[in-house]
Design a protein around this nucleic acid. Structure first.
Lengths: 347, 347
DNA sequence: CTGAAAGCGCTTACAG
DNA sequence: CTGAAAGCGCTTACAG
């Protein structure tokens, strides 16, 4: 690269001081500079193709205008990847809207859980979003207590760290109500993951409450745990099929797990939805292309990304809302796997 | 945030100069510092929880240790999003390996095509990867000529800008050879996109060459253009089915387009692979879950991300290889849609 | 082996 | 309305 022009060069060419160059280029309000001078500066900058050096600006302003999106994957990698494009799009769009850049930082399995703290401590970013927080992360709590701007994607029970998540419980309830409306009374459930995960517990709670609403007692024999992947869904469904009194419908709190469950059903020669109705959760890209197309609870990935960034930036800029626990609503997407006629033929 | 410690604080606590602090913390080679001093500095830094300020470091070193991944989406958004997780993972992993951060910057439809140049001109990054370059991008050529480190994901005909892409032609040939090996002689093709796109032309060329190898003349009646999405695949397949002499197999150079083509086939009551063999290209996440599971050409998204970043960093660090045009090999994934028995029952 | 000083390229009080 | 000067927090020749 040839020598870059500096503000000094622009000042020289325009015949003004560096102060004036800075004032003009940053459009500092409440400072009157003659239109001619302003024009001369702008012209000089254009002519030299001058762009202020970001590093110098960061240093002097104390702002990086950057946020980091830390992507902490667990054993549930596949599952989460499905939301990455949408989440990132929402996050980057909001960031741009507010004038920030986005640093993307996945934490790989071979790294320590708090490998991301140096981003904060080293002032690489003004704040960060942690997707997939671990409850035993001491570094996270330290940082939060010190006042470093932080937003979680996903919840951490027992803390009041700002967090954005989906309303898992009401999402699950919507799926169960749909099944109930179609006449099912014996409804099984396969969770998305072990109950150590808060989302799993919440989805299970939604299932329980929706049944309770219509007076159906909770029967734990009808509930099996999935573990993020297909194979876990296949096994859980096999267990359900081994029951003396089979359910007529199963709510599976993860589309990926549902894929495996559908396979188990096929292996048993059962048809969906005729012999068994199936509802999923997540609405991953694949769900609409399954046979039958999967009725599922849509998770607004874009909205999660947008909301997390918006909340974070408000915190960074000292404009934090009083309520920092954001829960986004899901939406039931009716397709074929429950036997309801879809609103449109094309899904 | 409370006051951050600076190198001055560490120096004071350790009883040395800031120079020494810097030397120790950066592990500068060929400078001998007594083990005791070194120890004292390290201890002081640990005690104060000191991390050097990234902005100051960037300014003084002239390095940001950051690369940008610019994601230029076109009308082919859906198609490209499918590769984003893998590409990003490869890119971030390579970046971390070499000690760089990754800034993710999608260019949205409402932005100008060269909205990303300020990242380079303003020294926000040491170099960048442009995914989905436009051939009419003057700013890109300027930057390249000025020597700014740049790597393209995808090709730009007529330039020698370093670029990483998949070998489209050989990928297409592999699909066609597979179809030929299964006995098909009348093989149609639906392109992934209009032929203005270089990848479309290359995949078409692979189709043509593979047929030529076995002496089958090219018949343009058998070729229709897709346009990234399902609907285009549906229409193209309808056109193919309207032919007096139908093909017995169709190579569809995009899985997303293939999804639409499969629908058209279903609508016509044709079975795959019995009545028509289908091979795709891309191996998007959905392909293995289609009915029938799609035989397709796998694009190594992770490898593309890794290679692009590795090449870029070598260029940044003045260690550019002589060959800066990287073509990654694809791999044919045999599943059910061509009627070949899959290597394993589980795909 | 270690320290005092300059400087990276900006922005921002503070004078005029 | 505009300019000279200080300073952001580091690193790195350059002296000792």
């Amino acid at each position: 690269m040839p020598d870059r022009p500096t503000s000094r060069d622009v000042a020289r060419l325009a015949g003004v001081s560096r102060t004036t160059v800075s004032l003009v280029l940053n459009n500092v309000p409440d400072v009157h500079i003659s239109p001619e001078t302003r024009q001369r500066v702008l012209e000089a900058a254009r002519q030299l193709n001058y762009y202020p050096d970001a590093s110098a600006r960061r240093l002097v302003s104390g702002k990086t205008s950057t946020i980091a999106l830390v992507w902490h994957r667990g054993p549930d990698r596949t599952y989460r990847d499905a939301f990455l494009p949408g989440l990132l799009q929402g996050a980057t769009r909001a960031a741009r809207h507010y004038g920030y850049y986005v640093l993307f930082r996945p934490i790989e399995p071979d790294e320590s859980d708090d490998a991301w703290v140096e981003l904060a401590r080293g002032r690489h970013t003004d704040g960060l979003i942690l997707s997939g927080p671990r409850s035993d992360d001491a570094a996270l709590l330290d940082l939060y207590r010190e006042g470093f701007p932080l937003v979680l994607h996903g919840q951490l029970p027992g803390t009041d760290i700002p967090a954005v998540d989906v309303d898992n419980e009401s999402g699950a309830m919507a799926a169960i109500r749909h099944l109930l409306a179609l006449g099912h009374r014996r409804i099984g459930m396969i969770t998305n993951a072990p109950l150590a995960y808060i989302a799993s517990r919440q989805r299970l709670e939604g299932y329980r409450r929706a049944l309770e609403e219509v007076g159906i007692p909770f029967d734990e024999a009808l509930v099996h745990c999935g573990n993020f992947d297909e194979e876990s869904g296949r096994q859980a469904m096999q267990a359900l099929l081994a029951l003396a009194e089979r359910p007529t419908a199963v709510f599976i709190a993860s589309d990926m797990v549902a894929v495996g469950a559908l396979r188990a059903l096929r292996e048993h020669g059962l048809r969906v939805p005729e012999d068994m109705a199936i509802a999923g959760f997540d609405d991953i890209a694949t769900s609409r292309y399954l046979t039958p197309a999967l009725t599922t609870v849509h998770v607004p990935a874009f909205g999660l990304g947008w909301s997390a960034v918006e909340l974070l930036i408000r915190i960074i800029e000292g404009d934090a809302p009083s309520e920092t626990q954001v829960r986004l609503e899901t939406e039931l997407v009716v397709r074929e796997s429950c036997g309801a006629s879809a609103p449109q033929g094309k899904v």
